[in-house]
């Protein structure tokens, strides 16, 4: 059986766990614990290590989704997780502009690990304060070749859409490499 993996990353409380939980066929294995830091009190519990979800495509192929820890102090995990990934998704809480700078930093860090295709998921689009994907693109300084996609992490169709767009991006990158 072949296993492939995608990494779901993004700032603290951006919706990574929910995203994986929505699409995974197994209960997402996540390590959550009570928050003690004032800065992180926006969420009652946070992911200590990472989330892990599984999607069985058929008898021969399984896709694993790995969510990265939200907090900076776990960033030692990122490089380990990024090894061998097919692509990655940066989830951004569109309603919290104070996290955009961090999202950009995470994106740059992951791009440094591997030249792997990625997409940006503009999460919490159902929130009244959410920035639109177009505004988010500008705020995060995302080039036009990279997809910034609307997302609501507990909406299965939108989550599927994000994964599909990442897969299309992977094919497009392969085509470009093949042409080059």
């Amino acid at each position: 059986m072949q296993t492939v993996k995608m990494v779901v990353t993004g700032p603290f409380a951006a919706g990574k766990t929910e995203f994986i939980r929505t699409i995974s066929e197994i209960d997402v294995v996540s390590t959550e614990r009570k928050i003690t830091s004032d800065a992180e009190r926006i969420k009652d519990a946070t992911t200590v290590a990472m989330d892990f979800g599984r999607i069985t495509v058929d008898e021969e192929l399984v896709l694993y989704l790995f969510g990265t820890p939200g907090q900076k102090r776990f960033d030692f995990m990122w490089e380990i997780l990024s090894e061998g990934m097919l692509g990655f998704i940066v989830i951004v809480d569109s309603s919290r502009p104070e996290t955009f700078r961090e999202a950009r930093g995470i994106l740059d860090t992951f791009r440094g690990y591997a030249e792997t295709p990625y997409v940006i998921a503009a999460n919490k689009q159902d929130h009244e304060d959410a920035w639109s994907p177009d505004d988010l693109r500008i705020a995060l300084k995302i080039s036009k070749e990279i997809k910034v996609l609307p997302c609501v992490a507990n909406d299965k169709d939108l989550v599927k859409g994000v994964l599909l767009e990442l897969l299309y991006s992977i094919l497009e990158t392969m085509d470009l490499e093949g042409a080059g």
Binding site: V4, L63, L163, L171
Partner: peptide, 21 residues
């Protein structure tokens, strides 16, 4: 955890995932 013997294999896996989703 990775391993694509070739670009064709990788493409096949990606296409399979696209069909699935």
């Amino acid at each position: 955890p990775k391993a694509f013997a070739s670009n064709e294999e990788k493409r096949s896996v990606v296409n399979k995932l696209i069909s699935f989703f």
